[in-house]
Computed example of a mutant assay.
Amino acid sequence: MKDIKRFFRGNQLVNIPKKEKDKVLLFDYLITFFDKEIIYTEKEINNILREFYSDYAILRRYLVDFGYLSRESDGSSYTVIERKVIKK
């Protein structure tokens, strides 16, 4: 796994990478802060992500869009999606 520290200053994400492969690297890291056995509220997701980046809402949306989190249609709950790692 490539070093993701280049995206951070301390524990704060400097900016969201533009390249998709770098985004995936970032999201692979961020999802490790969530437990796949827990059903989260939006507020709980936000509280975890705000530790890394002030625009936590965009991180939440990316995690859903990239298939790391599943969201109920009414936004009431989120769960971690088990992802398969494809080695090249």
Rank of each mutant, 00 (worst) to 15 (best):
Met1Leu: 06
Met1Ala: 13
Met1His: 05
Lys2His: 05
Lys2Met: 08
Lys2Glu: 10
Lys2Cys: 02
Asp3Asn: 15
Lys5Phe: 02
Lys5Tyr: 00
Arg6Val: 11
Phe7Tyr: 08
Phe7His: 09
Phe7Lys: 06
Phe8His: 06
Phe8Cys: 04
Arg9Ser: 14
Arg9Gln: 11
Gly10Thr: 06
Gly10Trp: 01
Gly10Tyr: 02
Gly10Met: 06
Asn11Gln: 10
Asn11Arg: 12
Gln12Pro: 01
Leu13Pro: 05
Val14Asp: 02
Asn15Phe: 01
Asn15Gln: 11
Asn15Cys: 07
Pro17Arg: 04
Pro17Ser: 06
Pro17Trp: 01
Lys21Met: 03
Lys21Arg: 11
Asp22Ser: 13
Asp22Gln: 13
Lys23Asp: 01
Val24Met: 05
Val24Gln: 06
Val24Leu: 11
Val24Cys: 02
Leu25Met: 09
Leu25Val: 02
Leu26Lys: 07
Leu26Ala: 07
Leu26Phe: 04
Leu26Arg: 07
Phe27Ser: 04
Asp28His: 11
Tyr29His: 15
Leu30Lys: 03
Leu30Tyr: 00
Ile31Arg: 08
Thr32Ile: 02
Phe34Gly: 04
Asp35Thr: 01
Asp35Ala: 05
Glu37Gly: 05
Glu37Gln: 10
Glu37Ile: 02
Glu37Trp: 00
Glu37Tyr: 02
Thr41Gly: 11
Thr41Met: 04
Glu42Asn: 15
Lys43Leu: 03
Glu44Tyr: 00
Glu44Phe: 01
Asn46Pro: 00
Asn46Cys: 10
Asn47Val: 02
Asn47Cys: 09
Ile48His: 10
Ile48Thr: 15
Ile48Arg: 15
Ile48Gln: 13
Ile48Ser: 12
Arg50Pro: 01
Arg50His: 13
Arg50Glu: 14
Arg50Ala: 13
Glu51Leu: 10
Glu51Phe: 00
Phe52Val: 03
Tyr53His: 15
Ser54Asp: 13
Ala57Pro: 00
Arg60Asn: 15
Arg61Thr: 13
Tyr62His: 14
Asp65Gly: 14
Phe66Leu: 08
Phe66Thr: 01
Phe66Ala: 07
Gly67Trp: 03
Tyr68Ala: 12
Tyr68Met: 05
Leu69Lys: 13
Leu69Ala: 14
Arg71His: 01
Arg71Gln: 14
Ser73Glu: 12
Ser73Lys: 15
Gly75Cys: 12
Gly75Asp: 07
Ser76Glu: 09
Ser77Asp: 08
Val80Cys: 09
Val80Asn: 10
Ile81His: 09
Glu82Gln: 11
Lys84His: 14
Lys84Leu: 07
Lys84Ala: 10
Ile86Met: 11
Ile86Gly: 09
Ile86Tyr: 13
Ile86Lys: 15
Lys87Gly: 02
Lys87Asn: 08
Lys88Ser: 12
